[in-house]
Design a protein around this nucleic acid. Sequence first.
DNA 1: CTAGGATCCTGTCAGC
DNA 2: TGCTGACAGGATCCTA
Length: 317
Amino acid sequence: MPELPEVETIRRGLNKLILKQKLTKIDILCEKSFLGTPITGTVTAIRRFGKALVLDFNNGHSFIIHLRMTGQLIYDSDGKFTSSGAEPHPARSRYAAGHPSDNFIAALPNKQTRVILHFTNGILYFNDQRKFGFIKPTPTSEVEKDPFICKLAKEPWQMTAQELHARLQKHSNSLIKATILDQTIICGLGNIYADEALFTAGIHPERRSGSLSLEDATRLLEAAKSVMQTSIDSGGSTMATYVKADGTKGDYLDKFAQVFHREGQACYCCGTPIIKIKVAGRGTHICPHCQSSPLSNSQASAYRNSANSRKKAGQNA
DNA sequence: CTAGGATCCTGTCAGC
DNA sequence: TGCTGACAGGATCCTA
């Protein structure tokens, strides 16, 4: 499911593909997925607020786009796209990002296509299996007042450990996993990166937020930044990818997940099988050894870091 | 006010 | 084989 790194990857991708292009026509295939009156115009900026994407147009209007869990944006240039309006684009005619599925390579539109945005040089398909995502036209001046966007907390990079610690104390009785999934407390983490960050920091997801020391909060914040930055650097956990000519798609998460979707497999640090439990109503993956102690020490963290290095070295080989 | 459960939605998969 | 029900989860709404 698209989280902050995936949305940032989409933003960067679309920035190369539709910036300065004119949106000429909109087909709404599902009313629920387009919340407002369709408008057209030229794209002047593509911004991101947490997991929300914003397209600004040259007429004072914007689209707020949220992919929620299963949303996808697939740009198909139909071979007509030219980079910067000059050089022919490489023989890749489709850029797909968001929730990974066969839609990345399937014929479009299809039964999961909810909205079709026609641009001068290509078509952007908004696909969404579960219809939780949406495109919402909003005056550009009102974007930051949107009920969702205005409540967003700072992203990990903008937040200090002291701030995070103070926020955790405000929700001291909540489970730490539920707390860091709350976008009004810290912005950008979803289920995947919450699990990965808690593992990296050696913190059990069922600890009460108030039980975290400033040192714990520091480790957690650093872990959150680290797992998300790694993902952004690799193109949004490789779920966002140019679809190759041979029809293959990205090997979503396989390259860097330490615990997510690895239940039953050996922990990279200690060999203990990863288990899946339910925390705050969410599927949660932990190493019962590395995250068992309420106060994992810096030694464990160092051990994990060295194990991560070994793992990465192995992958690059 | 906080904490936590229900809800939305549809494709997938386990179990019978 | 084909049906049924559980499950997946981001954000919001509702309840205690």
